Deep mutational scan, measured.
Amino acid sequence: MPVRRGHVAPQNTFLDTIIRKFEGQSRKFIIANARVENCAVIYCNDGFCELCGYSRAEVMQRPCTCDFLHGPRTQRRAAAQIAQALLGAEERKVEIAFYRKDGSCFLCLVDVVPVKNEDGAVIMFILNFEVVMEKDMVGSPAHDTNHRGPPTSWLAPGRAKTFRLKLPALLALTARESSVRSGGAGGAGAPGAVVVDVDLTPAAPSSESLALDEVTAMDNHVAGLGPAEERRALVGPGSPPRSAPGQLPSPRAHSLNPDASGSSCSLARTRSRESCASVRRASSADDIEAMRAGVLPPPPRHASTGAMHPLRSGLLNSTSDSDLVRYRTISKIPQITLNFVDLKGDPFLASPTSDREIIAPKIKERTHNVTEKVTQVLSLGADVLPEYKLQAPRIHRWTILHYSPFKAVWDWLILLLVIYTAVFTPYSAAFLLKETEEGPPATECGYACQPLAVVDLIVDIMFIVDILINFRTTYVNANEEVVSHPGRIAVHYFKGWFLIDMVAAIPFDLLI
C-alpha cells in the first residue's frame, strides 16, 4: 500500500533555474538572501570558489559584500557603492579590487542584480563577478574607477581610450546646418538635424578633445543650467548677453562664444560640459537660429522629431539603469545623424518603425519583477520565466494532490484497515475457520451469522477504491517536481505499489 509523501509542494524551481543557467555559462556568482541580516550568502558556485580561493563552506553565510576579499588596494568608495546597491532595488555595476585567499590582487567587475517577489519586494541578490585585470595590471588604489561605466561593446579594446569628441564640431553647429540641408533625401539625416562627426583615429590627448566618459557625465550638469543662461549661451556672438549692473557675465554663455574659444586653444572642462549641455537642449539648428531671432517656433511634425517616441515608452518600462547606459552608448555611435529632440514631445505622434532597438522591449506582467540581467542570462521568455513566489501546480481535472487534506485522511483510514487485516486475518484463519468446520452448517442466516465476513468484505472494497484513487494521485519525481499527468501517474504506480495493492485487495476469504 503506498505511503508516498512529498510535502515540499507547491515547489518553486526558480532558484534552481537560475543556478542551472548560470552554471551553463561558466559564470562566477553568488546568491544572497536579502531578508536576513547583512544579506548572507546562501549559494556560491564553483567558479566563484576558484576565483577567490575560498571553499564553499568558508563563503556560505558570510555577508555578500565580500568584505573578506578586501585588501589594501580595495577602494572604500567601491565598497560603499556595493553596500548601497544592496540597500536599493536597481541593478548596478561596480569595479573593485579584490584579494584572493593567497593574497593576489585582481580588479573585478561586480554586477549586483536584485530579484523581487510578486509584491515588488527584493528577496534575493545575485552578484556576478568578472575579472577585468590581474594584480600586475591593477593601478594605484588612489585612482577611482567606479565613477565610470563599463566599456562599450562596439569599441575595440585597444581603442576604448582613444575615443574623442571634438569640441569644434559642437561649436560649428550653425555652420554645418547648410551642408545638412543640402544633403536632402540623399543624406542619412532628416531636415533640421545636426550631424556630429566623431574622430576615432588614435591621437595624443589634446586640450581640444573630450573623453567619452566626460560626455556621459554632461547629463548630470544640465539641471544646474538655468533657462535664461541656456538661451544666452545659444544666442551666440551676435547678441551678447546682458548683465545687470554690478553683475558679471555668465561664464556659461561665454563658453560657447566662437570668438572667445578661437582665441585660446584650450577650454576648461567645466565650460566644455556646460556648452555641450546647452546645445543638447535645442532640438535642431533651426531652433538655434530661432533663439537668435527671439522667436522659438513649435517643433515640426516630421520623422526626426518622432524618433524618440518609442524611446520614451522603453525608458518607462525599463527595469534597470543598464538600459540608460545602453541608450547613452548607442546615442554616441560615430558617423550617424543625431536628432536633438526633447523627450517631452507630442504624445499624438505616431511611433516610426526603427531597425535598431535601443531599449529592451516591454516586459510582460509575469516578468515585471525580474531584472534585465536575470532575463538576459536565463534566456527565457515571458511565458517560461515565473515570478519568485509559491505557485500552485497546474493539475488535470479529477486529480488528487498527494499533500491535500483528503489524501491525508484517506491514508490514515487505509492504515487502520491494514492494521485490522494484519490482526484479524490470522485470527480468523486459526480459530474461526476451525469452529466453522466443526459446527453445523448455517446457510440460512447468511452474513448475519458471520459479522467478521462483512467487515472483511468492506475492507476489500476499500482497498479496491484505494487502488483507483492512487491512479489519480500526484507524486514527486526525482527532481522534486509534482507530477499531475494521468499517464505518468499510471506508469509510476504500475512500477511501484500496484502489484502489492492488488494482492492485498483480493478477497481470499470469499474465494475459499
Rank of each mutant, 00 (worst) to 15 (best):
P258Q: 06
C105V: 15
D136H: 03
L86P: 01
H221M: 15
S178E: 10
T216F: 06
L15E: 01
L107Q: 06
H309F: 14
N339G: 12
L86M: 10
R292F: 03
G120K: 09
I288G: 08
H309E: 11
E274Q: 12
V41M: 06
E90P: 03
D102Q: 05
A217K: 14
E37F: 10
G314H: 06
I42V: 12
F129G: 01
L296M: 14
N117H: 09
I363S: 08
R281N: 07
D287V: 09
Q376G: 08
R281E: 14
H70L: 03
A204H: 01
D102P: 01
V122N: 06
M308D: 05
P334E: 15
S284N: 07
S153H: 06
A121Y: 10
L167M: 15
V295Q: 15
M308F: 07
R301W: 11
R181D: 09
R280S: 15
S322M: 07
G187V: 08
L86E: 01
P168D: 15
A223T: 14
P251R: 11
S55D: 08
K373Y: 05
E37S: 09
L349G: 12
Q75E: 15
A172Q: 07
G139F: 12
E208G: 05
R100K: 15
E50A: 12
K373A: 12
I82P: 01
S313L: 07
D323M: 05
E91N: 11
A244C: 08
L311F: 08
A193I: 01
R326G: 12
L127V: 09
S261E: 14
G224L: 14
P168L: 03
H309R: 09
Y43N: 01
I82S: 01
T201I: 04
G149W: 06
L267M: 07
G184M: 11
Q25H: 11
D111P: 01
G187K: 04
C276Q: 14
I31D: 01
S239P: 07
H309A: 12
I359T: 04
G183Y: 11
T371A: 14
Q81P: 01
D213I: 03
V115Q: 14
S275L: 05
T201E: 09
S104V: 07
R242L: 12
G139Y: 06
A78L: 03
Y54V: 01
I42P: 01
M218K: 05
R35K: 06
L167T: 15
A190E: 01
V94N: 01
K161D: 11
Y99W: 01
L315V: 14
H254M: 13
F106C: 01
R76E: 15
L173N: 12
E357T: 11
I333C: 15
D213G: 06
P245N: 15
N369C: 12
C105A: 12
L316Q: 14
V36S: 15
I31T: 01
S153F: 04
L210V: 15
L338Y: 15
N128T: 08
P334F: 01
R356L: 09
P227F: 14
G187D: 15
A268H: 07
A350V: 05
D16H: 12
V36R: 07
P297I: 11
V377Y: 03
V8P: 07
C52A: 13
Y43M: 01
G71D: 01
R273F: 11
V180N: 09
V36M: 15
A282Y: 15
G139T: 15
